[in-house]
Amino acid sequence: MAKEPNRVELLQGTLDMLILRTLLFGPMHGHGITKHIQRTSDDVLQVDHGSLYPALHRLERQGWIASKWENTDRGREMKFYRLTAAGRKQLVLEESKWQQLASAIARVMRPA
């Protein structure tokens, strides 16, 4: 499979944050989460399924998200994930860590 040049690999550890952020809008299934991340990043971020499902199951075990089988609008039964209260706190934490990291990298790349 040819790699599309305008897509970048996700940074290690950022997938969890993106999943939690995506679920902030409401419950969603795995497929939807992938599509949402791709769409909102204008197809720049590509989610590897080999990381997504382990990440979902890991987050669920940590109690940050919960799952439930529900029907989609079109009547297909899918496993929906939703954010828990602990997950919300975790999201705030990861986001602030991300901010720190991003600004630190920015300072290194463009010293004032």
Binding site: H29, G30, H31, H49, Y53, R76, E77, M78, K79
Partner: peptide, 13 residues
Amino acid sequence: DLEREIRGHLELE
């Protein structure tokens, strides 16, 4: 469960 979850994903795709 996992089987079903992935099957659902594939069907949507």
